[in-house]
Protein backbone atom coordinates (compact mmCIF):
# COMPACT_ATOMS: atom_id res chain seq x y z
CA UNK A 1 0.00 0.00 0.00
CA UNK A 2 1.34 3.45 -0.91
CA UNK A 3 2.28 5.63 2.07
CA UNK A 4 -0.37 8.30 1.40
CA UNK A 5 -3.13 5.72 0.88
CA UNK A 6 -2.01 3.92 4.04
CA UNK A 7 -2.03 7.21 5.97
CA UNK A 8 -5.54 8.10 4.78
CA UNK A 9 -6.70 4.55 5.50
CA UNK A 10 -5.42 4.85 9.08
CA UNK A 11 -7.33 8.12 9.53
CA UNK A 12 -10.48 6.43 8.26
CA UNK A 13 -9.99 3.39 10.53
CA UNK A 14 -9.69 5.61 13.63
CA UNK A 15 -12.77 7.63 12.65
CA UNK A 16 -14.71 4.48 11.82
CA UNK A 17 -13.83 2.93 15.18
CA UNK A 18 -15.00 6.07 17.04
CA UNK A 19 -18.29 6.07 15.14
CA UNK A 20 -18.73 2.33 15.76
CA UNK A 21 -18.08 2.72 19.50
CA UNK A 22 -20.47 5.68 19.66
CA UNK A 23 -23.17 3.81 17.74
CA UNK A 24 -22.82 0.82 20.08
CA UNK A 25 -22.63 2.73 23.37
CA UNK A 26 -24.53 5.93 22.50
CA UNK A 27 -22.82 7.70 25.38
CA UNK A 28 -21.48 10.77 23.62
CA UNK A 29 -23.81 12.35 21.05
CA UNK A 30 -27.07 11.98 23.07
CA UNK A 31 -25.47 13.70 26.07
CA UNK A 32 -24.05 16.45 23.84
CA UNK A 33 -27.43 16.97 22.22
CA UNK A 34 -29.41 17.07 25.47
CA UNK A 35 -26.91 19.55 26.89
CA UNK A 36 -27.06 21.80 23.82
CA UNK A 37 -30.86 21.75 23.80
CA UNK A 38 -30.95 22.53 27.51
CA UNK A 39 -28.78 25.59 26.95
CA UNK A 40 -31.16 26.77 24.21
CA UNK A 41 -34.26 26.20 26.38
CA UNK A 42 -32.75 27.70 29.52
CA UNK A 43 -31.57 30.89 27.87
CA UNK A 44 -34.83 31.28 26.00
CA UNK A 45 -37.03 30.95 29.08
CA UNK A 46 -34.70 32.52 31.64
CA UNK A 47 -33.91 35.69 29.71
CA UNK A 48 -37.38 36.36 28.21
CA UNK A 49 -35.81 38.50 25.49
CA UNK A 50 -37.65 40.72 23.03
CA UNK A 51 -37.45 39.58 19.35
CA UNK A 52 -34.91 42.34 18.57
CA UNK A 53 -32.61 41.29 21.39
CA UNK A 54 -33.05 37.62 20.51
CA UNK A 55 -31.84 38.35 16.98
CA UNK A 56 -28.73 40.02 18.33
CA UNK A 57 -27.97 37.25 20.80
CA UNK A 58 -28.84 34.23 18.66
CA UNK A 59 -25.39 33.73 17.15
CA UNK A 60 -23.70 34.02 20.56
CA UNK A 61 -26.07 31.52 22.15
CA UNK A 62 -25.69 29.14 19.22
CA UNK A 63 -21.91 29.06 19.61
CA UNK A 64 -22.02 28.83 23.41
CA UNK A 65 -24.27 25.77 23.18
CA UNK A 66 -22.17 24.20 20.40
CA UNK A 67 -18.87 24.87 22.19
CA UNK A 68 -20.07 23.43 25.51
CA UNK A 69 -21.61 20.39 23.82
CA UNK A 70 -18.46 19.82 21.78
CA UNK A 71 -16.33 19.96 24.93
CA UNK A 72 -18.46 17.17 26.41
CA UNK A 73 -17.80 15.13 23.27
CA UNK A 74 -14.06 15.81 23.47
CA UNK A 75 -14.01 14.65 27.11
CA UNK A 76 -15.84 11.48 26.09
CA UNK A 77 -13.33 10.97 23.28
CA UNK A 78 -10.49 11.12 25.82
CA UNK A 79 -12.15 8.84 28.36
CA UNK A 80 -12.81 6.27 25.62
CA UNK A 81 -9.10 6.00 24.88
CA UNK A 82 -8.14 6.09 28.55
CA UNK A 83 -10.33 3.12 29.44
CA UNK A 84 -8.10 0.03 29.48
CA UNK A 85 -5.28 2.16 27.99
CA UNK A 86 -6.83 1.82 24.54
CA UNK A 87 -4.68 4.74 23.40
CA UNK A 88 -1.63 2.47 23.84
CA UNK A 89 -3.22 0.11 21.33
CA UNK A 90 -3.37 2.93 18.79
CA UNK A 91 0.18 4.06 19.54
CA UNK A 92 1.53 0.52 19.03
CA UNK A 93 0.26 0.43 15.45
CA UNK A 94 2.97 0.86 12.77
CA UNK A 95 1.55 4.12 11.45
CA UNK A 96 2.43 7.79 11.56
CA UNK A 97 0.84 8.90 14.82
CA UNK A 98 -0.45 12.17 13.41
CA UNK A 99 -3.03 9.99 11.62
CA UNK A 100 -4.51 9.24 15.05
CA UNK A 101 -4.96 12.99 15.59
CA UNK A 102 -6.75 13.48 12.26
CA UNK A 103 -8.90 10.37 12.78
CA UNK A 104 -10.08 11.50 16.19
CA UNK A 105 -10.43 15.11 15.10
CA UNK A 106 -12.72 14.07 12.22
CA UNK A 107 -14.91 11.94 14.49
CA UNK A 108 -15.19 14.79 17.03
CA UNK A 109 -16.07 17.12 14.13
CA UNK A 110 -18.72 14.69 12.87
CA UNK A 111 -20.33 14.30 16.31
CA UNK A 112 -20.51 18.07 16.87
CA UNK A 113 -21.94 18.61 13.37
CA UNK A 114 -24.59 15.98 14.09
CA UNK A 115 -25.59 17.93 17.19
CA UNK A 116 -25.64 21.16 15.13
CA UNK A 117 -27.91 19.59 12.49
CA UNK A 118 -30.54 18.84 15.16
CA UNK A 119 -29.92 22.07 17.06
CA UNK A 120 -30.39 24.49 14.15
CA UNK A 121 -34.12 23.89 13.50
CA UNK A 122 -34.81 24.11 17.24
CA UNK A 123 -32.84 27.34 17.36
CA UNK A 124 -34.81 28.71 14.40
CA UNK A 125 -38.03 27.97 16.24
CA UNK A 126 -37.09 29.50 19.57
CA UNK A 127 -35.16 32.53 18.33
CA UNK A 128 -37.20 33.24 15.19
CA UNK A 129 -34.17 33.29 12.90
CA UNK A 130 -33.56 31.42 9.69
CA UNK A 131 -30.68 29.25 10.78
CA UNK A 132 -30.77 26.92 7.80
CA UNK A 133 -29.00 29.18 5.30
CA UNK A 134 -25.99 27.87 3.41
CA UNK A 135 -23.59 30.67 4.44
CA UNK A 136 -24.37 30.03 8.12
CA UNK A 137 -23.90 26.27 7.68
CA UNK A 138 -20.55 27.00 6.02
CA UNK A 139 -19.46 29.13 8.98
CA UNK A 140 -20.62 26.47 11.43
CA UNK A 141 -18.58 23.83 9.56
CA UNK A 142 -15.47 26.05 9.65
CA UNK A 143 -15.93 27.00 13.31
CA UNK A 144 -16.57 23.43 14.44
CA UNK A 145 -13.56 22.18 12.42
CA UNK A 146 -11.29 24.73 14.12
CA UNK A 147 -12.74 24.08 17.57
CA UNK A 148 -12.57 20.28 17.39
CA UNK A 149 -9.04 20.21 15.96
CA UNK A 150 -7.81 22.45 18.80
CA UNK A 151 -9.89 20.41 21.27
CA UNK A 152 -8.50 17.08 20.04
CA UNK A 153 -4.95 18.36 20.42
CA UNK A 154 -5.60 19.61 23.96
CA UNK A 155 -7.53 16.45 24.87
CA UNK A 156 -4.40 14.44 23.96
CA UNK A 157 -2.39 16.75 26.20
CA UNK A 158 -4.79 16.33 29.10
CA UNK A 159 -4.82 12.52 28.82
CA UNK A 160 -1.33 12.48 30.36
CA UNK A 161 -2.30 14.43 33.47
CA UNK A 162 -3.99 13.52 36.73
CA UNK A 163 -6.36 16.52 36.49
CA UNK A 164 -7.47 15.48 33.00
CA UNK A 165 -11.21 15.79 33.69
CA UNK A 166 -11.04 19.49 34.52
CA UNK A 167 -7.94 20.41 32.55
CA UNK A 168 -9.48 20.22 29.09
CA UNK A 169 -12.05 23.04 29.46
CA UNK A 170 -9.57 25.15 31.42
CA UNK A 171 -7.08 24.92 28.55
CA UNK A 172 -9.57 24.90 25.72
CA UNK A 173 -11.81 27.90 26.38
CA UNK A 174 -9.09 30.57 26.58
CA UNK A 175 -7.29 29.20 23.52
CA UNK A 176 -10.55 28.86 21.59
CA UNK A 177 -11.48 32.52 22.13
CA UNK A 178 -10.32 33.65 18.65
CA UNK A 179 -12.35 30.82 17.09
CA UNK A 180 -15.47 31.64 19.09
CA UNK A 181 -15.23 35.41 18.51
CA UNK A 182 -14.75 34.92 14.76
CA UNK A 183 -17.56 32.36 14.59
CA UNK A 184 -20.00 34.52 16.57
CA UNK A 185 -19.22 37.68 14.58
CA UNK A 186 -19.47 36.01 11.19
CA UNK A 187 -22.68 34.16 12.19
CA UNK A 188 -24.19 37.43 13.43
CA UNK A 189 -23.28 39.07 10.13
CA UNK A 190 -24.93 36.30 8.12
CA UNK A 191 -28.07 36.38 10.25
CA UNK A 192 -28.37 40.16 9.89
CA UNK A 193 -27.93 39.91 6.12
CA UNK A 194 -24.48 41.51 5.78
CA UNK A 195 -22.49 41.05 2.57
CA UNK A 196 -19.54 38.62 2.52
CA UNK A 197 -17.12 41.52 2.03
CA UNK A 198 -18.08 42.81 5.49
CA UNK A 199 -17.50 39.42 7.10
CA UNK A 200 -14.53 38.14 5.19
CA UNK A 201 -11.93 39.04 7.83
CA UNK A 202 -13.77 36.85 10.40
CA UNK A 203 -14.19 34.01 7.92
CA UNK A 204 -10.50 34.18 7.00
CA UNK A 205 -9.63 34.06 10.69
CA UNK A 206 -11.67 30.85 11.00
CA UNK A 207 -9.88 29.36 7.98
CA UNK A 208 -6.53 30.35 9.50
CA UNK A 209 -7.50 28.65 12.78
CA UNK A 210 -8.45 25.43 10.95
CA UNK A 211 -5.09 25.41 9.14
CA UNK A 212 -3.08 26.39 12.23
CA UNK A 213 -4.53 23.85 14.66
CA UNK A 214 -4.43 21.00 12.15
CA UNK A 215 -0.80 21.84 11.35
CA UNK A 216 -0.08 21.86 15.10
CA UNK A 217 -1.69 18.42 15.38
CA UNK A 218 0.39 17.14 12.47
CA UNK A 219 3.61 18.37 14.06
CA UNK A 220 3.11 17.91 17.79
CA UNK A 221 0.60 15.10 18.35
CA UNK A 222 3.22 12.34 18.60
CA UNK A 223 5.39 14.41 20.97
CA UNK A 224 2.37 15.17 23.15
CA UNK A 225 1.37 11.52 23.48
CA UNK A 226 4.79 10.00 24.13
CA UNK A 227 5.64 9.98 27.83
Amino acid sequence: MKPLIRYLNTIWQITRKDIQVEWRGRQGVPVMLVFALLVVFLFNFALQLSPELQAGLASGLLWVSLAFASTLGLNRSVSLERENNAMDGLLLAPVDRSAIFFGKSISNFAFTCLVAIILLPVFSLFYQQNMLSLPLIGIILLGVAAYTSLGTLLAALSIQTRTRDVLLPVLLYPLALPILIAAVESSRGVLSGQAFADLQSWVYLLVACVVLFNAAGLMFFETILEE
Binding site: M1, K17, R24, N84, N85, A86
Partner: peptide, 24 residues
Protein backbone atom coordinates in the same frame (compact mmCIF):
# COMPACT_ATOMS: atom_id res chain seq x y z
CA UNK B 1 0.24 -5.51 29.57
CA UNK B 2 -2.31 -5.94 32.34
CA UNK B 3 -4.28 -3.21 30.55
CA UNK B 4 -6.08 -4.97 27.73
CA UNK B 5 -6.37 -1.94 25.36
CA UNK B 6 -9.83 -3.03 24.19
CA UNK B 7 -12.94 -0.95 23.55
CA UNK B 8 -15.47 -2.36 25.97
CA UNK B 9 -18.58 -1.73 23.84
CA UNK B 10 -17.15 -3.54 20.82
CA UNK B 11 -17.18 -7.31 20.44
CA UNK B 12 -14.03 -9.45 20.46
CA UNK B 13 -14.18 -9.73 16.67
CA UNK B 14 -14.71 -6.00 16.18
CA UNK B 15 -11.79 -5.14 18.44
CA UNK B 16 -9.45 -7.51 16.62
CA UNK B 17 -10.68 -6.30 13.23
CA UNK B 18 -9.95 -2.71 14.24
CA UNK B 19 -6.36 -3.60 15.14
CA UNK B 20 -5.91 -5.76 12.04
CA UNK B 21 -6.96 -2.81 9.86
CA UNK B 22 -4.54 -0.49 11.66
CA UNK B 23 -1.75 -2.95 10.85
CA UNK B 24 -3.04 -3.11 7.23
Amino acid sequence: SHHTMFYQDLTAIENLRHYARLYA
